Amino acid sequence: MTEQVLASWKEGPARKAILDFVHEATTPGGAFVEPADRIATFDNDGTLWVEQPMPPQFDFVFRAWEEEVKADPSLAERQPYKALVERDQQFFEGLATQEPQAVASLLEAFARSWAGTTPEEFDARVREWTTTVRDLRFGVPYTKLVYRPMLELLALLRANGFRVFVCSGGGRDFMRVFSEETWGIPKENVIGSAAAYTYTDGRIVRSRALLGGLDLGPGKPEHIFAHTGRLPAFAGGNADVDIEMLRSAAFALLVRHDDDQREYAYSKGAEASLATAEQLGWTVVSMKNDWTTLF
């Protein structure tokens, strides 16, 4: 390992725990992890990039739904369009904390909105969003709000034979558009909630149905196993919906949002995961105290 490994991480228990695990996992002995089993999975929203005041994908879909409501005002009578029109704060808080019922409502509407489109058509819409829309607080595209320390961690794991996956409750196909250039993670290593596809007249098109269950809570290890045939050796998350994924891993990393100067300070939606981390001895990363830089 060179001096540049985890360069944005301060010396301390979190950095040491990561380096110790990687060393032990790659050194023959009791904690050695066979190369085929070196699976590392990471949540996206709040773990790899910002999730406040709302996960970025919601910005993308809300813009599309505003146009749909203009074209068909009757949509304003049902969720999640109703919450958007009425600026329903309670509904938005459920989305921000990835409350399963709220997220299910969003993803079902998301599937309806792009049903019948090809991957190329959907990708073009996402690509336009990534290049033209900017976060209101930071004034840059959302893909520039990825945490540099986490990118360094992904690089460290890859350099030591780990296959790195994103496992998010958000849309799989949405993340695939920018996963390779933003995280260095191939499209095929992106796991998330997804629409089912059909092959019709020589082309693949999105359907209205969701493929499997939501990639939240127990859905995370279920989707990981379905995708890889293994459970993770290393897992990183930041919220209660990541608990099951973290419990399924040999090494669990929990990101704590406690830096209100450089990002945000909050624990809503992470109370249970923080308590579980203390109980089970997970490695908790303080954004404020463990990272020299964020983005």
Rank of each mutant, 00 (worst) to 15 (best):
residue 2 T to I: 01
residue 3 E to T: 12
residue 6 L to Y: 01
residue 6 L to E: 01
residue 14 A to D: 02
residue 15 R to K: 15
residue 16 K to A: 10
residue 17 A to R: 13
residue 18 I to Y: 01
residue 20 D to W: 08
residue 21 F to M: 12
residue 22 V to M: 02
residue 25 A to R: 05
residue 27 T to I: 13
residue 30 G to D: 15
residue 34 E to C: 04
residue 35 P to N: 11
residue 36 A to Y: 10
residue 36 A to H: 12
residue 38 R to A: 03
residue 39 I to Q: 09
residue 40 A to N: 05
residue 43 D to S: 09
residue 48 L to A: 02
residue 51 E to F: 01
residue 52 Q to S: 14
residue 54 M to T: 13
residue 57 Q to G: 05
residue 58 F to S: 10
residue 59 D to K: 12
residue 64 A to F: 10
residue 64 A to N: 10
residue 65 W to A: 12
residue 67 E to M: 04
residue 68 E to I: 00
residue 71 A to N: 07
residue 77 E to S: 11
residue 87 R to Y: 00
residue 88 D to T: 03
residue 89 Q to E: 12
residue 93 E to K: 14
residue 96 A to K: 14
residue 98 Q to A: 15
residue 99 E to R: 13
residue 99 E to W: 10
residue 101 Q to F: 00
residue 107 L to M: 15
residue 109 A to E: 02
residue 116 G to N: 08
residue 118 T to K: 08
residue 119 P to W: 01
residue 120 E to Q: 14
residue 121 E to C: 05
residue 122 F to T: 04
residue 125 R to E: 01
residue 130 T to H: 11
residue 132 T to W: 03
residue 133 V to K: 10
residue 136 L to I: 12
residue 136 L to S: 15
residue 137 R to Y: 09
residue 137 R to C: 05
residue 138 F to W: 14
residue 141 P to C: 03
residue 142 Y to C: 12
residue 143 T to P: 08
residue 143 T to I: 15
residue 144 K to C: 06
residue 144 K to H: 12
residue 147 Y to W: 09
residue 147 Y to N: 05
residue 150 M to T: 13
residue 152 E to Y: 03
residue 156 L to V: 06
residue 157 L to M: 01
residue 159 A to E: 15
residue 161 G to Q: 09
residue 162 F to R: 12
residue 165 F to T: 06
residue 167 C to E: 11
residue 172 R to W: 05
residue 172 R to V: 06
residue 176 R to A: 10
residue 177 V to L: 01
residue 177 V to W: 01
residue 178 F to W: 07
residue 179 S to F: 04
residue 179 S to Y: 06
residue 180 E to G: 01
residue 183 W to R: 02
residue 194 A to I: 04
residue 195 A to D: 06
residue 197 Y to F: 15
residue 199 Y to P: 02
residue 203 R to G: 00
residue 204 I to P: 03
residue 205 V to P: 02
residue 205 V to T: 04
residue 205 V to A: 04
residue 212 G to R: 11
residue 213 G to T: 07
residue 214 L to W: 08
residue 217 G to K: 14
residue 225 F to Q: 14
residue 225 F to V: 11
residue 226 A to V: 03
residue 228 T to N: 05
residue 229 G to F: 04
residue 230 R to H: 15
residue 236 G to P: 08
residue 237 G to I: 00
residue 237 G to Y: 04
residue 239 A to P: 00
residue 242 D to V: 07
residue 243 I to N: 07
residue 248 S to N: 13
residue 249 A to H: 05
residue 250 A to I: 08
residue 253 L to V: 11
residue 260 D to E: 14
residue 261 Q to F: 00
residue 262 R to M: 02
residue 266 Y to E: 08
residue 270 A to M: 08
residue 273 S to I: 15
residue 278 E to K: 14
residue 280 L to T: 11
residue 280 L to R: 12
residue 281 G to I: 10
residue 282 W to I: 04
residue 283 T to V: 11
residue 293 T to W: 08
residue 294 L to A: 02
residue 294 L to E: 07
